[in-house]
């Protein structure tokens, strides 16, 4: 009991001391805080160093999303590349947790230090692929998924990816 009372009094004293401490609040619109490049804000889709869209529509971002705000549909290009036919993020649901970026095997989906996404109409918070896709590589400059994957695409035949041997000639009898 005494301990409890003491604890309450100490708490009150501690709080009272805060009368003389500085406020932590940043006066946001007048005063812009520094945001690190890895800050988790508005989501973009990036391109690989060759300028092709990085997203391969693997759906991992969608499944990693805890609020289920990413929906996409895969499609295939002539050369076998996978790409999203549509890619939709409902930013009115997004919690900017960055799980999609963590899950992305191609570094396509990235969060940017832009969080100022206010709209009067909630419908405007629904971003389609054309709103998300940027022309650059974003934070990761050199990675190109298809250079490490085994699938053949235009400009990269079988066996031409990183660490790959030339295709096997099955008709050869050599050991």
């Amino acid at each position: 009991m005494w301990e409890a009372i003491r604890s309450q009094l100490v708490t009150m004293w501690t709080i009272l001391q805060h009368t003389f401490t500085r406020s932590e609040t940043v006066q946001y619109p007048e005063e812009k805080p520094y945001l690190a490049p890895r800050y988790r804000g508005r989501i973009v889709l990036t391109c690989d160093p060759d300028g092709e869209e990085r997203c391969v529509a693997c759906n991992l971002c969608a499944v990693a999303c805890p609020v289920d705000c990413i929906a996409l549909q895969q499609a295939t290009k002539e050369d076998g590349r996978w790409y999203p036919e549509f890619f939709r993020i409902n930013f009115s649901r997004c919690i900017m947790c960055g799980m999609c970026e963590e899950a992305c095997p191609t570094n396509a989906i990235q969060l940017t230090p832009d969080f100022e996404m206010c709209e009067y109409d909630r419908q405007s918070m629904v971003y389609e692929k054309e709103h998300l896709q940027i022309a650059g590589t974003g934070k990761y400059h050199d990675y190109n998924y298809y250079r490490v994957a085994g699938m053949a695409i235009a400009g990269k035949d079988k066996g031409e990816a990183k660490n790959e041997a030339p295709p096997i000639d099955v008709k050869s009898l050599m050991p």
Partner: peptide, 16 residues
């Protein structure tokens, strides 16, 4: 149980 995209699937029609 991991069905994804429920809040975005038809968000193009209506965000509600």
């Amino acid at each position: 149980h991991r069905y994804s995209g429920r809040t975005a699937m038809r968000a193009n029609i209506s965000v509600h």
